[in-house]
Amino acid sequence: MITDFVQNCIDGIMVGSGYSLLALGFTLVFGVLKRLNLSYGPSIMLGAYVGTWSFLNIADNIWLVLLTTICATVVIGIYVEQLCFRAVSKETTIASMVSSFAIWMQLEEIALHLLPERTYPFPAFFDSGLLEFGPFTARSEYLFMFVVMLLLLLILHAFIYRTRIGLAIRAYSDHPSASAYMGIDGSSVLFLAFIIVSIIGGIAGFLILSADSQITPFFGLWATFKGLIAMMLGGIGSLSGAVLGGLILGVIEANAFWYGDPVIRDISSFMLLFTMLIIRPGGIFGHKIEIHQKIASERV
């Protein structure tokens, strides 16, 4: 009994590290932009499609797939940034969200033109092996993903809190116009943030898909959903919150799947999100949000 539960938690943390990776990208872009990029998941998917395409058509080389996936995701990220976030004026946050949704539709269709079948194989990073720790097991590729996720968290944290560029990003995110007076170029901060986020997305997509060893057109929606839920659970704008949110989501899902079925798993993750938003909207690590105070302080 208890062994099952612990095993579920291990599985959950392993799968959840993928959610954490996605949430890291979401939380960065939302923290900087204060606007929601719905097309994040689909752009990762299209990037991974390009990676698979190179795997099928150019060479059976895992590093090539990794490189093409990341590069394609970055290019698509820049496209999304230019079209949906830079060009749309800052006051109209809804418009950029809807236009990122329009681009989502576009990206999905481009992906389907690139590779029209239902599913394609995605190359595994290394041969999957089952690691055993006493009565518990973990798949090596998931363990690898977990380690990469922690590494990325450390690197990002150091980058955001220890470098001058990170300081510029934080300043912009805190107060765009005040940071402009300090000589920070807002549009290059945005551009940089999008590139970083796309690189994280490319790595996340590559690791998740190579653990699954296949890619389907549903990956875009899936990635957007899981990243969003994990980000909201952890608290917007917090890096460690995003990671924790992803891991919690993974553990809850693994247990709900074990004791129930896939539908119960999905219901429980949305129910968790909904309850969290009602009881503690700021997430686990987020600050309390007081709507009126916030608006009032912005006025002053």
């Binding site: 749309v88 809804i94 418009a95 809807v98 236009s99 329009a102 681009i103």
Partner: peptide, 14 residues
């Protein structure tokens, strides 16, 4: 259509 919509929202955000 997706491209048209994105371009339109640049000029007419509401």
């Amino acid at each position: 259509f997706g491209g048209l919509m994105a371009v339109m929202l640049i000029f007419m955000p509401r």
